[in-house]
């Protein structure tokens, strides 16, 4: 359809459309991971949370008929998973990367288990905001259908930036992530701050899952996520632990993900799979170029990934 009317213009249009459609999950998981990592912990398990969020959102939307209740359920599921991760990953001598992988397996298991009955039925989808109503071209019109969750995510990015910069709570989280000793001297409970940061981050990742199942691709299957949750950690490194840059990175990754399908729509499909892998190749190249054995990355929280000390 796109090709007939637009010819090669279909490629940039396809990429823009793909970016608008596919960036929201990246945006939510990266903001969630950013919040978590600012407190000094890594959550590699957001893939499981994303799947769980997608499943809960779809199931609740189907059962109640209200997609917004589904979004709420996805957030709650995220909170629950964050609680598990926050408790297990903060035990002494427990590796948080390993806990993340366990949470991916557990989360996808629970999501597929509970989601089995919801693969067939179709649930009410979130309403969309049609910014393309002015255009007479159906391709443009459908490309500019924007999910309200995407706009919400765009709003959260600067809010989170402000939160870290200018609020007491933001400062506390940064203190816990940068120098736990100083935070402890201030009388802050490192355990609780990290637990809450992990839970809040997971909450956002759950919402990201809702945007998968209730907007795009807009269904619930076991293959709904293409690894957006796993990419969260890489995205945050790419964004240098800065929420605004998480937004840019998510747009870039959403766009990169759309290159393959956009080229395929105009008949170029010889390197389809390699184009699909472009976000991963891009991240790896950027990490190779910007990391250096001589210095640590700019913006990395000081205590990130260091083993938890005993609870005090």
């Amino acid at each position: 359809m796109t090709t007939e009317v637009l010819g090669w213009w279909g490629v940039p249009l396809g990429i823009v459309a793909g970016t608008l459609r596919g960036s929201a999950p990246f945006l939510f998981v990266s903001l969630g991971e950013c919040l978590t990592e600012k407190s000094g912990k890594i959550n590699l398990g957001l893939e499981g949370t994303l799947l769980m969020g997608a499943m809960s959102a779809y199931a609740i939307s189907y059962l109640t008929g209200s997609p917004w209740l589904g979004v709420g359920a996805a957030g709650l599921a995220g909170l629950g998973f964050g609680l598990i991760h926050g408790i297990v990953a903060q035990r002494p001598r427990v590796n948080d990367v390993a806990v993340g992988i366990a949470m991916i397996i557990f989360g996808s298991g629970v999501a597929f288990f509970l989601g089995k009955p919801f693969i067939q039925p179709s649930a009410p989808q979130l309403p969309t905001l049609d910014f393309g109503a002015w255009s007479s071209l159906p391709a443009v019109e459908s490309a500019l259908k924007v999910s309200p969750l995407f706009l919400l995510g765009i709003a959260i990015a600067p809010l989170m930036q402000w939160f870290f910069r200018s609020t007491r709570w933001g400062l506390l989280i940064r203190a816990v992530g940068d120098s736990p000793d100083a935070a402890r001297a201030m009388g802050v409970s490192i355990y609780n701050v990290r637990l809450l940061s992990i839970m809040a981050g997971s909450f956002l990742a759950g919402i990201g899952g809702a945007s998968l199942s209730l907007f795009y691709p807009g269904s619930w299957t076991e293959r709904i996520s293409s690894g957006q949750g796993l990419m969260a950690v890489a995205l945050v490194i790419f964004a240098r632990w800065n929420p605004i840059q998480c937004l840019y990175a998510s747009l870039l990754f959403g766009g990169a993900q759309a290159i393959g399908p956009a080229l395929q729509s105009v008949g170029v499909d010889s390197y389809y799979y390699l184009f699909n892998a472009s976000p991963y190749i891009l991240t790896l190249l950027i990490m190779i170029l910007t990391c250096s054995p001589q210095r640590t990355l700019a913006g990395v929280p000081g205590a990130l990934g260091k083993p938890s000390e005993s609870r005090l």
Partner: peptide
Amino acid sequence: LPDATALVFQGLVFLVVLYSES
């Protein structure tokens, strides 16, 4: 039970074993 049951079991074993490290 859905085939994902084995995945749930696997995840639970992994989580509990990791917890037991502490």
